[in-house]
Structures are given as structure tokens and as C-alpha cells.
Deep mutational scan, measured.
Amino acid sequence: CHSECLGNCSQPDDPTKCVACRNFYLDGRCVETCPPPYYHFQDWRCVNFSFCQDLHHKCKNSRRQGCHQYVIHNNKCIPECPSGYTMNSSNLLCTPCLGPCPKVCHLLEGEKTIDSVTSAQELRGCTVINGSLIINIRGGNNLAAELEANLGLIEEISGYLKIRRSYALVSLSFFRKLRLIRGETLEIGNYSFYALDNQNLRQLWDWSKHNLTITQGKLFFHYNPKLCLSEIHKMEEVSGTKGRQERNDIALKTNGDQASCENELLKFSYIRTSFDKILLRWEPYWPPDFRDLLGFMLFYKEAPYQNVTEFDGQDACGSNSWTVVDIDPPLRSNDPKSQNHPGWLMRGLKPWTQYAIFVKTLVTFSDERRTYGAKSDIIYVQTDATNPSVPLDPISVSNSSSQIILKWKPPSDPNGNITHYLVFWERQAEDSELFELDYCLKGLKLPSRTWSPPFESEDSQKHNQSEYEDSAGECCSCPKTDSQILKELEESSFRKTFEDYLHNVVFVPRKT
């Protein structure tokens, strides 16, 4: 048989008469490798580009789960590009990614509803959504962080984005990388972005840091009482949809009607710091009717980097990364020049730590249904340095008659930039024990000054392991946590139920 035959053949030295091919099969003959313009397919066939392209389009058009959109890589027609490569849609070739590779997620039936953290986790790592997304989240724990972890990498949506009755959302900033909504599939009414009845939605994105392009379709905003109209108009300008909307697409009466839409800028007039305090004062603000001013709200939190936005980490279910302080308005003076500047002394802060701070007014709604208010920009203030805590785990070892090696770990709280350490030492008198000992005694162990690591005695271990207080009263049991108490109650309830079950099964009433 021919060298490319495997198993047997019907005619000697003829690659077209093989029972099976050793390498690849091409047009009725066995070959060692697939010549151009053919590609290896499933490690035994040679196919042309049209064959591989037909497989790709067949799966793409069917949208069946589990099928493969075949691509070409290293002269092979394979189910998908290997790690580190992405497909070129024009020629199906796998090309190296520039940075992290995109991950295209194809949605069944063309859309997916995100109504819980669990459903959001199914899209973790996706960068391109081939379909439409509907966000409908009523509640949950730590929602802002969970949504950002699972949806934060999405850069492109081919269909539309719909935010509907998501009472738990305060902001859409968890879509931190969303840059493009194509609108290839539109919501009824030709809408590519749809926001309806979101009672706590206050911000779409921080438009000073976020760009969003909507290729096709219109915007729809109705019944978002805490979303200011200025935020919607800003989205029109940034996304390129200005002029597409009709009169009733953006409701003037049901958007922002319960919001404090600040239209003035508060400026800080005085800032002073110490290692654990920050004193702030800002310019006074009074609405047209000074009785509408209820006070100020001061927001602050630790910020290692200057990239904080107002609604980071917030949701309507209680999660809030900001510390909020309510401040009463100052006494009002008739003389504008003698107006008191409101302020606040922030206490209990960490030394040498940068804080993000902003302040906003708290006002009631005027009778004319106009909203007044003022808010400052987010500023960054760093507390002063102070003395560091003591170095940890000092170790001293003498390696000769004239040297001592000293080692330690950095302090747990540096409280500033540590530039150097101060080492103090003092000579001590020799131990009298060394002169009084009889060095001729056998088995004498000389006193040693070398360091030995501390260890816990058996008594201390027994005390720590004991669940009861000892007789001397030195140790006591740790208080039980809520989960331990709940577990004990469940076990007790189970024992009672099981005992009742045994009584009912074992003891049967005697027939009379």
C-alpha cells in the first residue's frame, strides 16, 4: 500500500485506493498535508475557505447554543480562536489581540433580562453583547459592586439597553466600559436606550469621564423622579442622539420631579488639616426662599486615587461607600458681607490618608415646582503625618564578641513616609551569675543571650482551647457569634421535631 494509506488498500502504491488515510483526505486521495488554498479540518480532512465560511455563517444565523462559528488559524479551520487571539470578521482569520481579548457573548432569543446578581454573573467577562440587555433589578445585597464585577467589562451592545423598574439602582456607572450601543435591534418605538419607572436612579454616568455613542435609535425617559433633566440632556449631547427624540420621548413632568437638581456650584473657602482632623468651610448658599434650606450634607471617604465619582458603590438597598454628615444651616444675616460661612470639623480620621470630599445642599421643593440647590466639586484632601507606631517583631542576635545583629519589621501604621529608623542602645553591667558559677561542674549549661522565638506554653494553649472559665478566673470563653447562636437554635429545633416524629412513629394507638 501507499505510504499515506492506513489499515489496508485495494490497489498497491495508489493513494486513492486506501481504506483510511494516515494524515489527511483531499478529493478522494490521501495526502501528507493540505496544500494551499485548503485548510486542515478536524485533523483528517482538507477543506477550502468557502466550506469553513459556510459553517461560520450557519452557526451565526441559527443562534443555536453550542454550535461553533468556525475560524481560520495556522492553516486550520477550527471552532474558535485560541487564547490571546480574536477573529477578523472580513476573512475569519485569528489575529493577536492588542491588550485583553474581546469576548463576544451571543444571547438566546436576542435579549437577556438581568433581574438578579445570579443572572448578571452569566455575563461575567463579556466585552461584546450580541443582542439586547434588559435591566430589571428590584433589590439585593452589595448590588453596585456585584454588577460592576460582572457587567463592568461590557464595551458594546449590538441591540438596545433597557432599564425598567430597577428600584435598587442609583447610577449606571457599573457599566464602566460601555462605549457603544449599535441599535441594530430596537425596542418598540425605535428606541435604543429605554429608561422607565426607576424610582431611585439619580445618575446615568459621570459624563466628564465617560463617552457613549448610540449609532441608531432614540432615547426614552419616563417616570424617573430623581433623575434630573440636565442629566438626560447631557446624554443626548454626548451620545449623538440630540435631535432624534420626539416631543413625548422625554417626559418633562415625570423626570426629576422629586430630585434636588443642583444648578449652582458650592466653593470651599477654608481648608485646614491635622493628622486626624480636617476643618472645612464653604461659601454660604440661600435659595430664593431661605426657609427652603434644610441644611447641608457632607460626604467623605478614603480615596487612594483621584478618580472618585459621587455615586460609586451606591445602591438604593443601603450600600453606600460614603460617610454622610448632616449639618444645620448657619444663622442668616441681613448683611451679605457678614454672612457666616458654614463648615464642619471632621474628626477621627487616619493620618497621612487622602480623602475625597464634597458637600451639597438639602432643600425642600418650592411652590413653583422649581428645584434649587448647590453642590461642590469633589475635592481631595490629605491629612498630615504623625509619629508612626512601633516597629514590629524586633530580633537581636550576637554573632561574635563585638557585634549584635538587630532586625525588625516595619510598623503596622507608618502614618507617613518613613525615611529612617533611630536605634538606641545602652551598655549593661555583666551578670554576677557568670562569676559565681563553678565551671568545672559536669552538665553545666552556660547562660545564653542568643534570641529564641517566643512560644506559647501548654497552660496558655489549654486556656485558649477551654470553653469555660478556669477556677483562677484568668480566662473566659469568647462570646458566641450570631451565626453560632442561630445554628444552635436550628439544631435544637431539629432535635425537638425529630423526637416528636419518633414518638408518633414508635407509639401507635392500640386498636379498641
Rank of each mutant, 00 (worst) to 15 (best):
N136S: 06
K103E: 10
K267L: 08
L298K: 00
Q216A: 11
S116Y: 04
L252M: 10
P411D: 03
G343N: 15
Y355A: 01
P284T: 06
K242C: 15
V363H: 10
G140C: 15
E262T: 11
P284Q: 14
N190G: 11
E236G: 04
T185D: 08
G139V: 15
S166L: 08
G189Y: 15
I114W: 01
S260E: 07
T371Q: 12
V359T: 02
Q245G: 15
I379H: 04
Q258T: 13
D115P: 03
N255K: 04
S401E: 11
W352N: 05
N142M: 08
T323H: 15
K350R: 14
C261L: 03
G295F: 15
F268L: 03
C228M: 03
A195F: 13
L180F: 12
S239L: 11
V238T: 05
I250H: 06
Q306H: 09
F358G: 15
R138N: 15
T273F: 06
T386W: 05
W352T: 11
S401G: 13
D249V: 12
A120N: 02
I357V: 12
L212S: 03
S208G: 14
F174S: 06
L406G: 01
H106K: 04
I379R: 07
D393W: 15
K350I: 03
S398P: 12
G217C: 08
I163Q: 00
W408K: 00
K209L: 09
M346E: 02
F299C: 03
Y300I: 12
E187C: 13
T241R: 11
I134V: 11
L212E: 00
A385T: 14
L227H: 01
N307K: 04
S173M: 10
Y355T: 00
V363I: 14
K350S: 11
S319Y: 14
F296C: 03
F290T: 05
N150S: 11
D292N: 12
K267W: 07
E237R: 07
P391D: 04
N190H: 10
S338N: 07
K209E: 04
T113F: 03
L186Y: 06
G256L: 06
A385V: 03
K177Q: 05
W286H: 04
G139C: 08
G110S: 12
W207F: 13
V308H: 00
N198I: 02
D335R: 12
W322H: 04
S400W: 05
W282G: 00
K407V: 13
I357C: 15
L169T: 09
R202G: 06
E122L: 14
L133C: 01
V381E: 09
W286V: 04
D312N: 06
L186D: 11
V128C: 08
W322F: 10
L362P: 03
N248E: 11
K301S: 07
K162T: 02
C317T: 03
L252H: 06
T215H: 08
D335G: 04
P329V: 05
L201T: 02
A195V: 10
R202L: 05
I188M: 02
F175I: 13
L123Y: 12
L294E: 07
S171P: 00
L201G: 00
L107A: 09
D312L: 05
N190Q: 12
I250K: 03
K337T: 13
K234E: 14
A303L: 04
E231T: 13
Q354K: 04
N198M: 06
H233M: 01
H222W: 09
K253C: 09
P225L: 06
L186W: 09
I157Y: 00
I395R: 15
W408S: 00
I214N: 02
T127S: 10
S321T: 13
E156W: 07
D292W: 12
F175R: 00
Y167Q: 15
Q354L: 13
W344R: 08
Q339K: 13
T309V: 13
R176I: 06
W286K: 08
Q203V: 05
R124P: 01
N248C: 13
D377Q: 05
S319F: 12
L172W: 00
G217N: 03
L227P: 00
R291W: 09
T353F: 04
L298I: 06
L133S: 00
L172E: 00
D289M: 03
A356Y: 00
Y305M: 14
K337S: 12
S158W: 12
S260M: 07
A168K: 01
F174R: 01
R291F: 05
L172G: 02
K209P: 04
S338P: 12
P287I: 08
P304M: 15
A251Q: 11
G318A: 03
S173E: 11
P391I: 04
T118V: 05
T371C: 07
S321H: 11
R179C: 14
K253G: 11
I271R: 01
A120V: 08
S166G: 12
G313H: 14
D328L: 03
D249L: 15
T113P: 06
A259S: 09
I129W: 04
P225G: 14
N263T: 08
F299K: 09
